[in-house]
Structures are given as structure tokens and as C-alpha cells.
Amino acid sequence: MKLSRYLLVSTVLTGSLLAVPSASAATGWQVGLAEPGAGSTNVETGPLRLGSADNRAASAESAARTGMASYPHTLATPANAFTATVTSTVPDGAEVAVDVRGRTAGRWTEWAEIRPDAPGVLSAAARDVEVRVVLSAPDGVAAPSVDALTITPVTGQRATAATPGLTYRVFATREGLVGHTTANGHKIVQRDHFVALPSRRGLSAKGTGDYSVRVCAGNGRCEWAPTWDVGPWNTRDDYWAAPGVRQQWGDLPQGKPAAQAAYEDGYNGGKDQFGRKVKNPAGIDLADGTFWDGLKLKTNAWVTVTYQWTGTHPHGIVRTSGPVLNVRPGPDSQSPNVGLAAKHAQVRIECVVAGEQVKGSQGTTDQWYRLAKGMFVSAAHVAPGPGSAPVPTC
């Protein structure tokens, strides 16, 4: 076991990033590790330590056990880049990582990892930020711990330009694994509604949908679902990321999962990051309810995925008493079901129209949101996203 203490400061240029001054040029804050916020899972405090629960990517038994602790913070001045000073005890084979995100226009940016050789860079400057400590250890390895953490905003950093409304066609597989625990601590139930993406950068905390996707099948059906697990195949493949930002396999085209490249092209020797032979080109896993009920799929298939945290549309969060909200082709509940929106999912809203009056968690209203062409949900079941832009009339 080794004691690890390192100061994360950037001294190199990466892609479009500008040089970063020493962390001493700005005032940081010491994170109160004993008081993790909402969304934390499988950690113990005093010091912050990986817990004993079996939280891991459900589709990869060889993946390490994982715990996450999050800490919100409000800055005096908006910033978009951060370094960290960490004092931690990390046994050989274990890992401690520090991520950061910020809220802009009411929506969270994607998580950015703060690394020893480069700061975490957000797509836009933010005053409200959140730090996430990720602790992981393979089976048989002692739990890592963190004794102290200081985060420092840095200046002179250029944000990576965000690509609006990222959409890619990828291969989808059914996750199944009912009774298993996902990477964010959710216990999978029968006919569940969530997805797995192969990077924690797009992982929502348990019971939230900050990072959700719209998945559409070739039959025309779509489901909006939160990302609650990491996988399939890989766990560090944010293939939707812009060039120069992708966690791993940055030589691949944006939008092409590493598993697809391994399966189709023999990339990485045809193997995933764990050394397993890749047997299908999957870039997303679908829970049973999403697979069977939302999309009406009978077998694994190519789907079109839109990453809901990207783009500039107004947005909302599905708040319904049941597990899903029906998506209709028009603004009335008598129209046939053409898809589903899972509880907690973030949805991008194109516009609003008047239709049937409906009573729901947001009161009684005749307003219906159009989420895509020919796809509407009642505003009675969708809470406006904090700070979201006003919804235009259709």
C-alpha cells in the first residue's frame, strides 16, 4: 500500500487548450470529505473510503468495485478549468479519480476528469460546480481512501466547443442482469428502464437523469432513459466526445465506439480494455423495459442515440408516479403509444402546444411538449429543468 500525494497542474498544451498558470495563482477550496452530497454511493467517511457494496459495471464482472462521493460548491467567480491536490492511500491495482462538472443555463456539463498532467476543463464557465471523487478496486484489492482534497480554479483556459445535439447510430444490446447492482448503485429490477454507456462521464447518480439519452429503433419507436450503468464492454470509452477530449482511443472517429472498431476492424487486437474478445459491436446497453417495452425490440439491433445533455434546446425532467410516461404522436392521451419516457429521464423540448387537459405531478394543464417530430408528452408530468430556456410555441 502506498501513500499518494500529488498536485494536478497543467504545463502542456492539449488540442485547443491554452496554457494554464500555476494553481497557486488562484485560491482553492478544501473539500469537506466527511459530508458527501446527494448522489454519493458506496463510500464510507473518516477518511473517505470505498465501501463494501458490489457496485460495478453490471455487464462486466471483471470491472472494479466502484464508489462515488459528490460535493457541490458555489464559486465567487465563474470558472471552467480546475486542478486538484489530493492526499490519498491507494493500494496497488486500486484507483482514485477526481471529476468536476458545472451547471450552465440550468443544465450540467459532462463530467471532466482532473488528471495529474492536465486540469479538468468544462465546456463553459460555471459558478455552481460539483466535484466527484471516484474510488475503485478490483476484487481482492484493499479499498483506496482519500484524506484530503483541495480544488483550485485556474484561468487562461479555453473551453472545448460543445457540439449541439450529438446523435450517433450505434449497436444496442439488452443488459438484463435483473438483481445485479449497477455502477451508480441502482439494483436492476424486472422490465427496468435505463441505459448503460461505456464511460462514467455520462453516468447519472442513482435516481437522477442529468445524463439521459433518446434511443430510437428502426421501427420508429423511441425511449428517453437515464444512464445508470457503465458499459457495454468498455468503461473509459466516451465515444461521443470531441477529438482531443475522448478518455481513451482518441484515434478513432468521433461517434464510433471502441467495441465496434474492435469487432468490425480488429482494432486493439479485437479486444476490449479488459482483454476480452469483443463478440458484438455494442455501444449502448438497454435495460429490459427499454429494450422490450420502449423500443419493442426482439433482438439486439442498430439504434440512433441522441445524448440529451448536449445541445441547446430547453429541457425538463420526467416526474411521473409510475416507471414511464407514454409518448404520443399528438397532444392527447387517446393517441396510440409511439414510445416511452422513463421516470427521472432528462428530455430535450422542441416546443409546446395546447391539447388535452391532464393532471399530473406538475398540476393540471393542457400544455404538451413536443420532444421530436410526431412525439409529444403532457407537461403535467415533466418538471422544467432548473434555469432552462423558455419553451417556444410550436
Score class of each variant (00 low, 15 high):
160 T>G: 08
158 R>V: 09
185 G>R: 05
81 A>H: 00
103 R>W: 14
63 A>Q: 04
155 T>P: 02
80 N>H: 06
173 T>Y: 04
95 E>Y: 13
96 V>I: 00
124 A>G: 09
102 G>E: 01
68 M>F: 07
59 S>H: 09
178 V>Q: 02
164 P>I: 02
113 E>N: 12
135 L>W: 01
168 Y>I: 09
195 V>K: 00
182 T>A: 02
92 D>T: 14
126 A>Y: 11
68 M>S: 07
100 V>S: 03
142 A>V: 11
171 F>Y: 06
158 R>Y: 08
94 A>E: 03
122 L>I: 02
61 E>C: 14
79 A>G: 12
162 A>N: 14
194 F>E: 02
114 I>E: 06
132 R>D: 12
89 T>A: 14
73 H>G: 11
114 I>A: 03
61 E>V: 15
163 T>N: 07
101 R>D: 08
114 I>T: 10
76 A>I: 01
134 V>W: 07
172 A>C: 06
190 Q>Y: 05
128 D>Q: 15
146 V>N: 08
180 H>E: 12
135 L>P: 02
108 W>Q: 13
190 Q>V: 02
78 P>L: 00
67 G>F: 00
70 S>H: 04
81 A>T: 01
92 D>A: 15
98 V>W: 07
80 N>W: 06
147 D>I: 06
113 E>M: 04
113 E>G: 05
160 T>E: 10
79 A>F: 01
97 A>D: 04
173 T>W: 05
110 E>T: 14
161 A>K: 15
140 G>L: 12
109 T>V: 13
161 A>D: 13
116 P>T: 05
81 A>S: 02
97 A>Q: 11
80 N>M: 03
192 D>F: 00
123 S>N: 11
59 S>F: 07
172 A>H: 04
107 R>M: 14
70 S>L: 10
178 V>E: 00
103 R>A: 13
123 S>V: 01
166 L>P: 12
127 R>V: 08
85 T>N: 13
201 R>W: 03
142 A>S: 12
150 T>G: 13
137 A>Q: 07
111 W>M: 01
104 T>G: 12
200 R>T: 10
180 H>S: 15
128 D>F: 11
79 A>V: 10
160 T>M: 06
81 A>K: 00
153 P>V: 04
134 V>Q: 13
167 T>S: 08
67 G>V: 05
103 R>G: 10
80 N>A: 07
153 P>N: 01
88 S>T: 11
144 P>C: 04
90 V>D: 04
98 V>I: 12
175 E>C: 01
188 I>E: 06
179 G>I: 00
163 T>S: 09
139 D>Q: 14
156 G>D: 10
72 P>N: 04
95 E>Q: 15
153 P>I: 05
166 L>C: 11
65 R>Y: 00
121 V>E: 07
111 W>Q: 03
168 Y>L: 01
177 L>T: 06
63 A>T: 08
146 V>W: 03
164 P>Y: 03
198 P>H: 05
197 L>V: 06
117 D>A: 15
89 T>N: 14
116 P>V: 05
192 D>Y: 01
68 M>D: 11
198 P>Y: 08
